[in-house]
């Protein structure tokens, strides 16, 4: 039973409902993208899975057993979060040693290798790290703990383009060598799209989409043409948004389009993941 199962999860903060009756299953050895706008509920979901906060109702099972107040189950999960939970005055290499105590499979040699690869100074104190290096420091721990589930909440926050490229490459290398379930929550959708196998889009506390990246991408289209032509063409289609430019209209369609029924003068193109995400979550 290698999966994380989220059942009927609801969480409110005061009068804000962060998660509304969420049901999900994260299968073993897959890379998931958890996408959502700011405040959509991504971090709340990850925090509940990792037992950092409690839900109002519902449950999370890790390999079939409850995730709540269960150290045995949580030993299989590592959450890299945006918030820093490490002692600020501790040096990076000491945090590695300390992490090793909690995660016996922590690979110290690999952590050192990645430290050199990213150019992180291991003698620095946690509080001395820049935003980018703070993320890198946490990425290194997440990739070195060797748990079957790693949850990465905004892993590339503050990373420059070169470091992000190293991160994606390292992630794929790590996944190839030691397959595991990786859940990535990020706003840089374009960059990560090819790394992801399945996509979960969460919007205002609810699951909007949960399917393979490839499947999702086959369903997003834009059609552009004169406003009257486009209006009649999209009448029976699931239109998720549109733009106009003078008499020219671009409509965003979710669903399948039969290219042979396309009226003359209408240009069709596919939506990439980021543009599709924007249209689906525009409110």
């Amino acid at each position: 039973m290698n999966f994380i199962e989220v059942k009927s999860l609801t969480k409110t903060f005061g009068n804000v409902t962060a998660l509304k009756n969420i049901n999900l299953k994260f299968e073993g050895n897959k890379i998931y993208g958890l996408l959502g706008r700011n405040g959509a509920g991504k971090t709340t979901l990850l925090n509940i899975i990792n037992n950092r906060i409690f839900p109002d109702s519902g449950e999370v099972l890790i390999d079939g057993v409850t995730a709540f107040e269960n150290d045995y189950a949580q030993r299989n999960v590592y959450l890299m979060s945006e918030k820093n939970y490490y002692p600020l005055t501790m040096k990076v290499n000491n945090v590695f040693k300390w992490t090793n105590e909690f995660y016996p499979l922590f690979d110290m040699d690999y952590a050192k290798e990645l430290t050199a690869k990213f150019g992180l100074n291991p003698a620095k104190k946690v509080k001395e790290l820049s935003t980018g290096y703070n993320s890198i420091f946490k990425i290194i721990i997440a990739l070195s703990v060797n748990t079957p589930y790693i949850l990465l909440d905004e892993p590339v926050l503050g990373l420059d383009a070169n470091h992000r490229a190293i991160f994606y490459k390292t992630l794929i290398e790590n996944y190839n060598a030691n397959p595991k379930t990786i859940i990535i929550s990020t706003h840089l959708i374009d960059e990560v799209a090819n790394v992801l196998e399945d996509i979960i889009i969460i919007n205002q506390g609810e699951i909007l989409k949960n399917e393979s990246c490839e499947q999702l991408l086959t369903q997003g289209y834009t059609v552009t043409g004169s406003t009257t032509t486009i209006n009649s063409f999209i009448a029976d289609k699931n239109t998720i948004g549109y733009d106009t430019l003078g008499g020219l209209k671009t409509a965003y369609i979710y669903g399948s389009v039969d290219k042979s029924e396309l009226p003359t003068g209408v240009e069709i193109s596919k939506l990439d993941l980021q543009r599709l995400f924007i249209q689906l979550t525009n409110s």
């Binding site: 890379i31 794929i172 190839n176 090819n194 790394v195 992801l196 196998e197």
Partner: peptide, 15 residues
């Protein structure tokens, strides 16, 4: 190999 290609282009090996 699948691994080499997936690392080279940063693509999910399943793809």
């Amino acid at each position: 190999s699948t691994t080499e290609i997936s690392v080279r282009y940063k693509i999910n090996p399943a793809t």
